[in-house]
Nucleic acid binder design. Structure first.
Length: 578
DNA sequence: TCCTTGACTTGCGATCAGAAAC
DNA sequence: GTTTCTGATCGCAAGTCAAGGA
């Protein structure tokens, strides 16, 4: 019965797709698109006169442009960033460009600049904001809501859709991740003249602010963005696009998982293939095969080349260098161990030791021959070569599909393995989180341990201890009630026993729930679950699991997540198989 | 074939707002 | 009512990958 219903629902969903399918055949993403344009960053408000800047101990009044950039620095004064040489150097260089010639001649050493009054002023401001009355806070909230209603939605074809980021990024200082050569540089203010609007011809076009004009208004329905501008740090393009709950994002997401499911069907064939290729006469084929093995087995990212000096030095699979791996023919009781140690996306460290097959090991030794530490491990390979190869093996296959596939299949397996039918709901949720955690570990999704981790752990432990005490007290009472009932055999005492029995049971449940929470939190100290949940795990697996075990959906997905995964919640029944 | 550009996804930390504790 | 804590949301940087031009 359920299966039938699911099929019917799925069919309906697909029918609906088909109705609007015509758009995708020619690559067009929409027919009609209307929106109000972006919300620009608020103009700069000069500091009040009493907030002073000192240079070399002497008061110096800055021109508005120089002052604005100085406030960006002042706002970050408490951050470690501002102590870094590179950050200070880049900031100072860009700041000078905003100074008048007089300022330039006076200010010659950033170390003689004193931003503390500015910094104190901003701290006081944010303190004051916290202290605002309820009414004032409400007013701000209402104003935000109004802006959201006006600018936060667009009409795409026949649907009103939520826009993801409708505010233009305000000017400020660029903060890269890791050891970024451009940290501290000035991110300039984006004006209407920098902005390209994309909407349909027959829509009401967004109006630029009085006295300004857009850089361009175009009508390109081959793309999904509404607004774009070029950012000045890397020269890359930034976009305003729709919210993940939108039809256009949801469909794309669905497609992504369908591609991963197609990989599931042929992954064994591909594995056999790359194992075969380890023996190839051609170096490029061997390298490709070993790289693919890493991508499959360790869920490494593809690893595009990056322009040196433009970004932090990070790598993925294809861009691994000799210095990033170490080979041990024997380590402890294992043979042929490869040790990985490199900075990946966002300069997050990837550290792992993995025993590999002898053939892989021998290949790696070969790849390392006569190379310097800074040489590429896979010198005959790049992401473009790899992806072209993958495309030949399966339509739509690229390196990142392996991450999606391995993440989703791992979740499904782990859920099967960890969920026991008769455990309580909190225990089931712990199992779910553990399955999710296995994936996060596979994908190396880390986080800095929360600053308040130790404290919050202690708080939880205190609660557990209290609950423990409460439990033994209540147990004692139960025992007492039983004794009394044995003596008196009356109805009142019988009732009392029942009441106490229930109380014990309730407290036991509460205690267990707390203990589950503590375990979960402890295990999750340095692991970030969000990224995999949002980007790698086929939501239908979770939906099916929730339905199978009668776990409330909101224990697994919060409101935004339910919105994003609406398509899956609608589509999957408890028998869904990834 | 190489290099650049453009569009889109993925990723972390910061900040915010509401719930819980006091 | 006020303060503290926590999960949700935001902000925006940093990846992937395809296409187009040299």
């Amino acid at each position: 019965e359920n299966g039938k219903k699911a099929k019917k629902r799925k069919q309906e969903y697909e029918d609906e797709e088909e109705e609007e399918e015509e758009r995708s055949t020619d690559g067009s993403k929409w027919k009609f698109l209307e929106h109000k344009g972006p919300v620009l960053a608020p103009p700069y408000e000069p500091l009040p006169g009493h907030v002073r800047f000192f240079y070399d101990g002497k008061l110096l009044r800055l021109s508005a442009p120089a002052e604005e950039v100085a406030t960006f620095f002042a706002k970050m004064l408490d951050h470690e960033y501002t102590t870094k040489e590179m950050f200070r150097k880049n900031f100072y260089k860009d700041w000078r460009k905003e100074m008048t010639s007089e300022e330039k001649s006076k200010i010659t050493d950033i170390n003689k600049c004193n931003f503390t009054e500015m910094s104190e002023y901003f701290k006081a401001q944010s303190e004051a904001r916290k202290q605002m009355s309820k009414d004032e806070k409400l007013k701000i909230k209402e104003e935000n809501e109004r802006i959201l209603q006006e600018y936060g939605f667009c009409v795409m074809d026949n649907h009103k859709e939520r826009i993801g980021n409708f505010r233009i990024e305000p000017p400020g200082l660029f903060r890269g991740r890791g050891d970024h050569p451009k940290m501290g540089m000035l991110k300039r203010r984006i004006r209407p003249e920098d902005i390209i609007i994309n909407c349909s011809k027959d829509s009401k076009h967004p109006k630029p602010p009085q006295g300004t004009r857009w850089k361009e208004v175009r009508h390109d329905n081959k793309v999904t963005w509404l607004v774009s501008w070029t950012e000045n740090i890397q020269g890359s393009i930034k976009y305003i696009m729709l919210n993940p709950s939108s039809r256009i994002k949801g469909e794309k997401d669905w497609q992504k998982y369908e591609t991963a499911r197609r990989l599931k069907k042929c992954v064994e064939r591909l594995r056999a293939q790359y194992r075969e290729d380890w023996k190839s006469k051609e170096m490029r084929v061997r390298q490709r095969a070993v790289a693919l093995y890493f991508i499959d087995k360790l869920a490494l990212r593809a690893g595009n080349e990056k322009e040196e000096g433009e970004t932090a030095d990070t790598v993925g699979c294809c861009s691994l260098r000799v210095e990033h791996i170490k080979l041990y023919s024997k380590m402890d009781d294992q043979e042929y161990v490869v040790e990985f140690d490199f900075l990946g996306k966002d300069s997050i460290r990837y550290y792992n030791k993995m025993p590999v097959e002898k053939r892989v090991f021998k290949n790696l030794q070969l790849f390392l021959e006569n190379k310097q530490p800074e040489d590429d491990l896979f010198d005959r390979l790049n992401t473009s070569i790899l992806n072209k190869h993958l495309q030949e093996l399966m339509d739509g296959l690229t390196a990142k599909v392996f991450r999606t596939y391995n993440a989703s299949i791992t979740l499904q397996q782990q859920l099967k393995e960890l969920t026991s039918p008769d455990e309580s709901i909190p225990a089931k949720i712990l199992s779910y989180n553990r399955a999710n955690r296995a994936v996060a570990i596979l994908c190396n999704h880390q986080r800095a341990a929360p600053k308040t981790f130790e404290k919050s752990m202690q708080n939880l432990q205190t609660k557990i201890d209290e609950k423990q005490k409460q439990l033994s007290a209540t147990r004692k009472q139960l025992k007492g009630a039983k004794t009394e009932h044995k003596a008196s055999h009356d109805d009142r005492s019988k009732k009392m026993v029942e009441v106490k029995r229930k109380a014990v049971q309730r407290i036991e449940e509460q205690l267990m729930k707390l203990q589950m929470q503590a375990t979960d939190r402890e295990e999750n100290k340095q692991i970030a679950l969000g990224t995999s949940k949002l980007n790698y795990l086929d939501p239908r697996i979770s939906v099916a699991w929730v339905k199978k075990w009668d776990v409330p959906m909101e224990k697994i997905y919060n409101k935004t997540q339910r919105e994003k995964f609406a398509w899956a919640i609608d589509m999957a029944e408890e028998d869904y198989e990834f």
